[in-house]
Design a protein around this nucleic acid. Structure first.
Lengths: 231, 231
DNA sequence: TAGATTGTTAATCGATTAACAATC
DNA sequence: TAGATTGTTAATCGATTAACAATC
């Protein structure tokens, strides 16, 4: 088994495709399918087999010529690379509409993410239960984070308070912030920020619409190289 | 003025960065700043000047050596490429938490997007007003879309009904669907689908956290080439 | 065995970055 | 004028795709 690439790191574009493979393989697993080939996956997801094979090779998996990969094994390898093999606890701050949507989204379980608690500052939200999670006063967040050694913070507060909320998260020892606010955050170097950027997505959509013609844009999967990315 | 690149198309990575430039320039405009150089923008956004210059060159803008670009002119050129210079009408289907969050988000105005109406199937939502938009019965959507020649549909329904909702949109003549549901949509070739993929984002976050070390991941801006993209 | 598929090395392609002349 | 900045062409880098030997 070659896992030299596990050491050097996996290209970001490949990593972004992993969840699609993962969800497809999970469905196969449910249907008790034991083996799958790159050819099969590629046909199903409208990709080139070689890209699937390359992507999967980064996980260090080894398959059987003529047969393919063991579905369970492949899932395990993908989850290993993604850090999805164990549930990681997270907190969410900002129980507004967006926060509530995320709290209610059950798909996160599949992605190894477990939102343990939600926080807000508004008295009318504190005490409520959203998506089976209690909403607590945000003032209790840093302490709880510290006590439970929670590493991931999901930021769904209003733009005006996003920086101070991030500061609170950092104070509690949060190591990675999933930022759904439109603002750029200032955080120490050791804190990872993943910025969810709707405007960038909309840019692609509206530019494509304006130059309507050729292809269907697709963030992730879908789109061979032939579907040019120039818009 | 060279606009050969306006014809051939703009690379997707550049387009994704345009909204960040746009919002920064809008702030400058508010502060009555007339000119700006790539050096200045780069310093502010933590990018390389050459990348800014390259990106901006695709818009066909022409600047003045030693002075830079006229802010208003640059905004106009960016908006032109993005199709943000006029408000484009859109409808939103699915007035749940996520839909409500989007209905309430005022930033879309800056991005040339005007959500004219929202739709849902739940009786308790129909008739409500969310973010100053009336929620109507989804059965009225195709007709309204057709009558108002609306091109953009925002899909925020539950996974189970995403395909049928997309079908309704297509039936009404929608040309581009911004898909916030987790499912891949089957649509005719002439319909653009922009799939918002949270799992892909989470993949980067969790993989980075797992291999914690070097860099701060950032979807868009932030991150010179030196901050390796391998995770 | 024949043939499909893996695994790996090489070729291609496009985005990023560098270099530098032109310009005000 | 001197120097900062644009505009453009070239170099680099990394992801995607192709080619092909190994294998079951």
């Amino acid at each position: 088994m070659t896992n030299k690439l596990r050491i050097t790191g996996i290209p970001e574009p490949s990593l972004r495709r992993y969840p699609v493979y993962h969800s497809y393989l999970k469905k196969m697993e449910e249907n008790s399918i034991e083996y799958v080939s790159c050819t099969k996956i590629a046909a199903e997801l409208n990709q080139l087999p070689i890209q699937i094979r390359k992507d999967l090779s980064y996980t260090g998996i080894s398959g059987k010529p003529k047969i393919g990969y063991e579905v369970k094994d492949l899932i395990h390898h993908l989850e290993d690379c993604l850090g999805w093999n164990n549930l990681t606890d997270a907190v969410l701050v900002g129980a507004g509409n967006l926060g509530s949507a995320l709290l209610g989204f059950e798909g996160f379980q599949q992605c190894g993410l477990n939102i343990t608690a939600a926080f807000d500052i508004a008295p009318d939200k504190i005490g409520k239960t959203i998506g089976q999670k209690k909403v607590l006063n945000v003032s209790k967040m840093p302490d709880l984070v510290k006590r439970m050694k929670i590493k991931i913070g999901i930021l769904t507060v209003a733009e005006q308070v996003s920086q101070e909320t991030a500061d609170l998260m950092v104070a509690g020892g949060i190591e990675a912030i999933w930022n759904f606010s439109p603002s750029k955050l200032q955080v120490p170097d050791h804190v990872i920020v993943q910025h969810e950027n709707l405007a960038a997505s909309l840019a692609i959509l509206s530019a494509s619409l304006k130059n309507k013609g050729r292809q269907q844009t697709e963030n992730l999967v879908g789109g061979n190289r032939n579907d040019s990315k120039k818009i």
